[in-house]
C-alpha cells in the first residue's frame, strides 16, 4: 500500500473543521426564501386591508357595484394567499425566485431541516395554533373597535400570543440566531408600550404601532440574516479554498 501525501498534515492557519461550522452558519442564515414569502404575504395583506377599507367606504356611500367588486377581489386575493401559503405551487415559486436571487451560489440546507419538515408534517396542532393566531388578533381588533381595548395596548395584547408563537416556529424550524431578533424586539416593544414609553404613533398613524412590530421587525431579522449569510459565505469560501490552489496548479486546473 502506498503512503499518503503528507501535505494535509501540515499545520494550517485555521482548523479545516472550521469549514463545517461556517457551512452550517451559512445554511442556517439563508433568508431569501423567507424574504420572498414575507414580501408576497405583506403585499397581499396590505392589498386585502385596502380592499376591505374600499368595501366599507363603498357600503357607506351606497356604491353597491364598487362594494361587490371589492368583495370579489377580497375573495380572489384571499384564495391567492392561501394557495401561496399551503399549496406546493407556492413553495415551487419561492424556490425559483430564491434560486434566481442566489444566482450561481447554489443551494445548501441546514442540518436537521429534513427532520424539522417531517416533524412539521406530524404536528397536527400547527394548523389550529396558526389559525388561533389570526383569530386572537381579530378578537383584539374587535376589542379595539368596541372600545374595550385602547389601540396603544393592541401590540402588547398581540405579543402575548405572537412572541411564544414566533419562538416555537424558530425552534421547530431550527432557524439561526438572526430569527430571534423578531420575537425579542416584539417583546421589548410590547413592554415599552405597556409601561408608557413614548414610542407610540399619534392619530391616524396609530396602526403603525402594530404594523411595524409585525412586519418591520420580521423584515429586519431577515435582512440581518441575509447579510450574515453573505459574511458566512465569504468566510466559508476563503477557508475551503485554502490549500486548494496548489493542488489545482499541480493537476492543471484553474
Amino acid at each position: 500500500m502506498g503512503t499518503c501525501d503528507m501535505s494535509n498534515l501540515k499545520p494550517e492557519a485555521s482548523d479545516p473543521r472550521e469549514i463545517a461550522k461556517w457551512a452550517e452558519r451559512y445554511a442556517r442564515s439563508r433568508t431569501i426564501p423567507f424574504l420572498v414569502q414575507w414580501v408576497f404575504i405583506t403585499t397581499l395583506v396590505v392589498v386585502l386591508g385596502a380592499l376591505s377599507q374600499g368595501a366599507i367606504m363603498a357600503w357607506k356611500t351606497g356604491h353597491s357595484g364598487l362594494q361587490w367588486t371589492c368583495i370579489l377581489a377580497i375573495a380572489v386575493f384571499t384564495l391567492t394567499l392561501l394557495w401561496f401559503s399551503i399549496a406546493k405551487g407556492g413553495r415551487r415559486q419561492v424556490w425559483h425566485i430564491s434560486q434566481w436571487v442566489y444566482g450561481r451560489e447554489g443551494y445548501a440546507s441546514p442540518r436537521g431541516r429534513r427532520d424539522a419538515d417531517k416533524r412539521a408534517k406530524r404536528m397536527t396542532w400547527l394548523l389550529p395554533v396558526g389559525l388561533g393566531l389570526g383569530i386572537y388578533h381579530l378578537i383584539g381588533l374587535v376589542f379595539v373597535g368596541l372600545g374595550h381595548l385602547d389601540m396603544r395596548y393592541l401590540q402588547p395584547f398581540s405579543a402575548l400570543y405572537m412572541v411564544p408563537f414566533l419562538a416555537m416556529m424558530i425552534l421547530s424550524q431550527r432557524l439561526g440566531l438572526w430569527a430571534w431578533i423578531w420575537p425579542v424586539l416584539y417583546a421589548v416593544h410590547a413592554v415599552l408600550l405597556f409601561v408608557g414609553a413614548p414610542i407610540d404613533f399619534p392619530g391616524f398613524l396609530r396602526y403603525l404601532d402594530i404594523i411595524i412590530p409585525v412586519f418591520g421587525y420580521g423584515f429586519l431579522s431577515m435582512i440581518v440574516g441575509h447579510f450574515y449569510s453573505r459574511y458566512a459565505f465569504r468566510r466559508l469560501r476563503s477557508l475551503a479554498r485554502v490549500g486548494l490552489e496548489d493542488v489545482l496548479v499541480e493537476t492543471g486546473e484553474e
Partner: peptide, 23 residues
C-alpha cells in the same frame, strides 16, 4: 473539503460546492 462542507449541512447542490471550492 467536500466532505467537511457536507458534514456541516443537510444537503448541498453541485453549484454550491462548485462556487465554494472554485473547482
Amino acid at each position: 473539503r467536500i466532505l467537511t462542507i457536507l458534514s456541516g449541512v443537510d444537503v448541498a447542490d453541485f453549484s454550491f460546492l462548485l462556487e465554494t471550492l472554485g473547482l
